[in-house]
Computed example of a mutant assay.
Amino acid sequence: MARPSWIAASVFLVFAASNAPAPLYVVWQREMGFPPSTVSLIFVSYIVGSVVALVFGGRASDRFGRRAVLLPALGLAIVACLVFATARTPLWLETGRFFIGLASGAFGAAGSAAIADAFGPGRGGRAALYASAAPVAGSAVGPLLSGVLADVAPAPTRLVFLVLIVPLAAAVIPLTAVGGRPAGVGGRWVQLPSIPREIAGTVVLAMAVAGSPFALAGLFISLGPALIADLLGNDSRTLAGAVSFVVFGAGASAQFLVRRMSIYRVAVVGLTVSALAAVLIAVAVGAASVPVIVVAAIAAGLGQSLAQLAGLTLARGYAPAGRTAEVVSMVWLAGYATVGSGILGLGFLADGIGLRPATYAFCGFFLACVCGAGVAVVRRRPVVEALEADTH
């Protein structure tokens, strides 16, 4: 059995690769000459790949074992890096994003379940922490590395992907030690994930908690660089990567700071900070302020990370035996569906009315969604408080 830390490191690498393109969208946009809506379509290609992997990957992982899903997904991540490094048209970028979406979706579901398996019974809180922090940390480091290399090294749209291929290939070694098929799990592997009826309300609540904050954080790895370049007047790829790093770096750090808080408090704090992030993004765009957008990025990262931790812990804690990955997939699916539809809508709205007013509409809509999720958490407080964030 592989160590949980090695599995988490593999998840980290895949998510680093999945978000490395973020600071490069503006570069590709200028080289290839496409509008904001195409940036949204490229990003949504990633979401589509992630959704496909979540729909089938979680069930396949429960049916055939974690290794049978994770190793092919790792191969797709390497192929995606090669596609990005040789991209010539938006279609290449969409293809690369689709492949890396498949990989990250598979690692989001099967990787989380593999970490839980490696920790074993009675350590669900720590497993949730690793499973939630690893993708967030990878999402932070990938854009920062990409942005810095784009500003200081040759081949700005190629080098980062060639660099990432090396550790991704090395990750094959620990993943071969991941446990095989879970005992006693059968059934068809090509099957849509579903919510067990007895925990439907709790899983829907987990999906609502994790969903809208995901969209606010996702803004910074999709159209965020365009906001910084066009509305704030700063064309630095390092700054764009640093803002993405702040989003996810703040989130990864926050998860270790709330280890002893109840999941109810984690959810409430995460949603409250996400609401603040929506307001700050709108203020930053209106004032054309880089400092405010950095503060907004910190708030978005904190809120998304804490809400994700709460949602994953709820889903995993109430999942029936043998259906952990399937139930976790539903929470990831809610997050990806929310961010995908939100960013796609923002891109096409920006084509029609401009990026600034479109961003105001985006922030207002998701502020309302976050507040609605907060009301739901308060109303179902006893259910949420039944799970403690026991991560020590």
Rank of each mutant, 00 (worst) to 15 (best):
Ser146Phe: 01
Gly147Asp: 05
Gly147Tyr: 03
Gly147Arg: 00
Leu149Phe: 05
Leu149His: 03
Ala150Arg: 01
Ala150Gln: 03
Asp151Ser: 07
Val152Gln: 07
Ala153Asn: 12
Ala153Val: 09
Ala153Arg: 05
Ala155Phe: 13
Pro156Asn: 06
Thr157Asp: 04
Thr157Gln: 12
Arg158Leu: 08
Val160Gln: 01
Val160Phe: 02
Leu162Ala: 14
Ile165Asn: 07
Val166Glu: 07
Leu168Glu: 09
Leu168Trp: 07
Ala169Met: 13
Ala170Arg: 08
Val172His: 08
Val172Glu: 14
Val172Tyr: 15
Pro174Trp: 12
Leu175Ser: 01
Thr176Arg: 15
Thr176His: 15
Ala177Ile: 10
Val178Lys: 00
Val178Arg: 00
Gly180Trp: 10
Ala183Ile: 09
Gly186Val: 15
Gly186Gln: 04
Val190Trp: 12
Leu192His: 05
Leu192Thr: 13
Pro193Leu: 01
Ser194Arg: 14
Ile195Glu: 01
Ile195Asn: 02
Glu198Val: 06
Glu198Arg: 15
Ile199Gln: 02
Ala200Pro: 08
Thr202Ile: 11
Val203Thr: 05
Leu205Gly: 11
Met207Gly: 14
Ala208Asn: 03
Phe214Tyr: 11
Phe214Arg: 07
Phe214Lys: 06
Phe214Pro: 04
Ala215Tyr: 04
Leu216Gly: 05
Leu216Gln: 12
Ala217Val: 05
Ala217Asn: 04
Ala217Gly: 09
Gly218Ser: 14
Leu219His: 07
Ile221Gly: 14
Ile221Lys: 06
Ser222Met: 03
Pro225Gln: 09
Ile228Pro: 00
Ala229Asn: 09
Ala229Phe: 10
Leu231Ser: 07
Leu232Met: 14
Leu232Tyr: 05
Gly233Leu: 06
Asp235Trp: 07
Asp235Gly: 10
Asp235Glu: 10
Arg237Cys: 05
Arg237Asn: 11
Arg237His: 15
Thr238Arg: 08
Thr238Trp: 02
Leu239Gly: 01
Gly241Ser: 07
Ala242Asp: 03
Val243Tyr: 09
Val243Gln: 04
Phe245Thr: 00
Val246Ala: 12
Val246Trp: 01
Val247Gly: 00
Phe248Glu: 02
Gly249Ala: 08
Ala250Phe: 11
Ala252Asn: 06
Ala252Cys: 05
Ser253Lys: 08
Ala254Lys: 06
Gln255Leu: 10
Gln255Trp: 12
Phe256Lys: 04
Phe256Pro: 03
Leu257His: 06
Val258Gly: 00
Val258Ile: 11
Arg259Asn: 03
Arg260Met: 08
Met261Val: 11
Met261Gln: 10
Ser262Glu: 13
Arg265Val: 10
Val266Tyr: 00
Ala267Glu: 02
Val268Gly: 00
Thr272Phe: 09
Val273Asp: 01
Ala275Asn: 05
Ala275Ile: 06
Ala275Thr: 08
Ala275Phe: 10
Leu276Gln: 06
Ala278Gly: 15
Ala278Lys: 03
Ala278Ser: 14
Val279Lys: 03
Leu280Val: 04
Leu280Ile: 08
Ala282His: 07
Ala282Pro: 09
Val283Ser: 02
Val283Glu: 09
Val285Asp: 03
Val285Ile: 09
Val285Tyr: 01
Gly286Ser: 14
Ala288Val: 08
Ala288Arg: 11
Val290Gln: 04
Val290Met: 10
Pro291Arg: 08
Pro291Ser: 07
Pro291Gly: 07
